Amino acid sequence: MKIKMYLLLVMLSTLASAQIKGNAPTISRQNVMSSTYLANPQSYGNAITNFRQQPLVPNANITIDVKALNNVVADAYTAVFNMVQIGETSEQTNNLMTERVNKVKIELMAHGINDNDIVIDVISFVPAYETVVENKLFSKKYNEVPVGFELQQNIHVKFTKVNQFEKILSACANNEIYNLVKVDYFINDIKAVYTTLRMEILKALQEKQQFYKDMGFDLSLYKPMIADTKYCYFPKEFYKNYQAFNCISLEAIKKSKGVLTAKEQTAYYYEPLSFKEYDVVLNPAIVEPVIQVGMEIKLQYIEKQKSEQPKEKEVIKNRFFMVSDEGNINITELKLEQ
């Protein structure tokens, strides 16, 4: 009886395990459908097998490469907003725009932004036309007549702290300015950033060279070749978008009948460069969008031909010639004490 119960429990455990493994891939790990790519694995059951991107293949040549990345927090930012103002006359249009801009400046200065950091860029100032239909006895004429003016400007606001951006948005929204064009990021001393990266790359390169020497490779018997590059990426280049798999409608709660279609909202998020392939990463913990500055260097050592390898120097010991009174010459080597 005990043996039968034991076999029954083993069979039930096996079936339960198979059921769990069979259902695991259907458990969704994310609720997004990206238009660019899926950031996370789709299910818990999918095993990641390709840890290495390429298999290791022994080679007669030696390749040493170093990749360094620096996540630099910007020293200054510039937000650009677009404004459009219309009016019946050019004077009225210009006065209305000036009034809005002055209100924005007053509110921004109250939040600690200097007047010199607010710049107005005039884009266009053109008359607006409407088509008027003129009916005649045997024909119709469509004439364009001026009905007003349209003034378009961009307002550039420079700030140095990220938390100031929320106050800038609020000041613009209070004056009916909603069109945020872009936000630019700036580094005051980019040369110092590259200098730091070169020093870090040199340290990592020397460590790798020493590693090969410790394994018995004489790099002086190889002819070196070099290639290097550098790059700088800004946050606006790394914003991705996605749409949720499931959408909800709050109006469906209030109605007992009928079908309501929920709008699929497109969301955006910041996806910086992953540092999994880098040897050196400065400021790896990213809290806010940063400027990513990178440098890469690759050294390839090609084994020299025998004719190119340095020849061993032949050491010739000093010889002394002794001439006797009879004229005989004796060649001998004298050991001199050092």
Rank of each mutant, 00 (worst) to 15 (best):
8 L>K: 10
8 L>R: 10
8 L>V: 15
13 S>K: 07
18 A>F: 10
19 Q>G: 14
26 T>V: 03
26 T>S: 08
28 S>E: 05
31 N>D: 05
33 M>A: 13
33 M>P: 04
36 T>K: 06
39 A>E: 13
42 Q>R: 09
43 S>L: 00
51 F>A: 08
56 L>A: 12
58 P>L: 02
62 I>Y: 04
64 I>Q: 02
64 I>N: 02
70 N>G: 01
77 Y>Q: 06
81 F>V: 02
82 N>V: 14
83 M>S: 04
83 M>R: 04
91 E>R: 07
96 L>A: 07
96 L>I: 07
101 V>S: 05
105 K>I: 15
106 I>L: 14
112 G>L: 05
114 N>H: 12
117 D>M: 07
117 D>Q: 06
122 V>L: 07
124 S>N: 04
124 S>E: 02
124 S>I: 01
124 S>G: 02
126 V>F: 00
129 Y>H: 02
129 Y>T: 02
130 E>L: 05
137 L>D: 09
138 F>L: 09
141 K>C: 05
147 V>A: 08
151 L>R: 08
152 Q>P: 11
153 Q>R: 10
153 Q>S: 12
154 N>H: 02
155 I>D: 00
158 K>A: 15
162 V>G: 02
164 Q>Y: 08
164 Q>A: 08
170 S>W: 07
172 C>W: 04
179 N>C: 10
183 V>L: 01
183 V>N: 01
185 Y>H: 07
185 Y>I: 03
186 F>S: 05
192 A>P: 09
192 A>I: 08
195 T>Q: 08
204 A>Y: 10
205 L>A: 09
207 E>V: 14
214 D>G: 13
216 G>K: 04
217 F>E: 11
217 F>M: 12
221 L>K: 10
221 L>Y: 09
227 A>D: 14
229 T>D: 11
230 K>L: 11
234 F>V: 14
235 P>T: 12
235 P>I: 13
245 F>T: 13
246 N>C: 06
248 I>M: 08
251 E>W: 10
253 I>V: 13
256 S>H: 11
258 G>T: 01
261 T>N: 13
262 A>S: 07
265 Q>S: 09
266 T>R: 02
271 E>H: 10
271 E>K: 06
274 S>V: 11
277 E>P: 02
277 E>V: 04
278 Y>E: 00
280 V>L: 00
288 E>V: 14
290 V>T: 09
290 V>K: 03
291 I>C: 01
297 I>D: 05
304 K>N: 12
320 F>H: 11
323 V>A: 03
324 S>C: 04
325 D>Q: 09
327 G>D: 03
327 G>N: 03
330 N>D: 14
332 T>S: 12
334 L>V: 08
